[in-house]
Each structure stands twice: as C-alpha cells, then as structure tokens.
C-alpha cells in the first residue's frame, strides 16, 4: 500500500481514481482547521468524491461501501494514520489492496500538501 505519496497526479485530476474523505466527525483528534481546508479544497474543485462522517463508524458497521471501494482499487483515502485506516478496513472485512491505494494523513500533513497531492495544480 502506498502511503502519503509525494508524487503529484500525472493525469487529469479525478480520472479513474476514487477519493474518500473522512470527516472524523465524532472526535477532535484531527485539527478542525485542517479538515475544513481539505474539505473546502475538495468541494471547491470539480472532483467527484465520497465524503463520510466517520470512517471508524463505517468500519464498525461493516458498511458494504467500504468493501466495494477496496475492491475497485485506484483509491485515495483522506483520513488519518495509514496503519489505522488499513486495519479499520480489515475490521470491516474490506481489506485494502497492498498497492494502488494512497492514504493521506490529516493528523500529520499540512492541508495544502494533501490538496496538492490530490488535485495537482488545480488546488
């Protein structure tokens, strides 16, 4: 699994990729300012994406959307630590593929960096 890659997308933003954004709505562990900037940047772009209130909650429910997302590949997940995200998906019986998945960590990465990686020059 690729984590926090520093490579910029070399293709049209959004083409063929799926982006999942976690709002971590039920805890204060992700800086509100970071979440706000990342969400605003994504929403202001033309990129199609899925936004969920809380990935932990989806994993606890074993939400089938996670399984389908994991199975599709070419996914970028904007959430928290890659180790946590990977095992949350496992808990939801939706193992992420070892590669073809990029996890952007809002707990330790600047929002501008995340948006740059997601949107390239459009951010």
């Amino acid at each position: 699994m690729t984590s926090e890659t520093s490579q910029r997308p070399t293709e049209e933003p959004g083409a063929g990729r799926r982006v999942l954004y976690c709002h971590c709505a039920f805890a204060r562990v992700v800086d509100e300012g970071v979440k706000e900037k990342v969400l605003h940047g994504l929403a202001s772009s033309d990129l199609a994406f899925d936004a969920v209130p809380d990935l932990c909650e989806l994993a606890a429910r074993r939400d089938p959307a996670l399984g389908r997302l994991a199975a599709e590949g070419r996914t970028e997940i904007v959430a928290c630590y890659p180790r946590a995200v990977r095992w949350l998906f496992h808990a939801a019986e939706a193992d992420l593929p070892e590669d073809d998945v990029t996890i952007h960590n809002m707990r330790d990465t600047e929002p501008e960096t995340i948006l740059d990686r997601l949107l390239g020059d459009d951010s």
Binding site: E12, G14, L20, A48, A51
Partner: peptide, 11 residues
C-alpha cells in the same frame, strides 16, 4: 454520508 458529483468516479 455524501457522494459529491463531478469529474471522476465515486464509490
């Protein structure tokens, strides 16, 4: 949960 439409694909 919200799926925002636009260019690209969604879940």
């Amino acid at each position: 949960a919200v799926t925002a439409t636009g260019s690209g694909t969604v879940a």
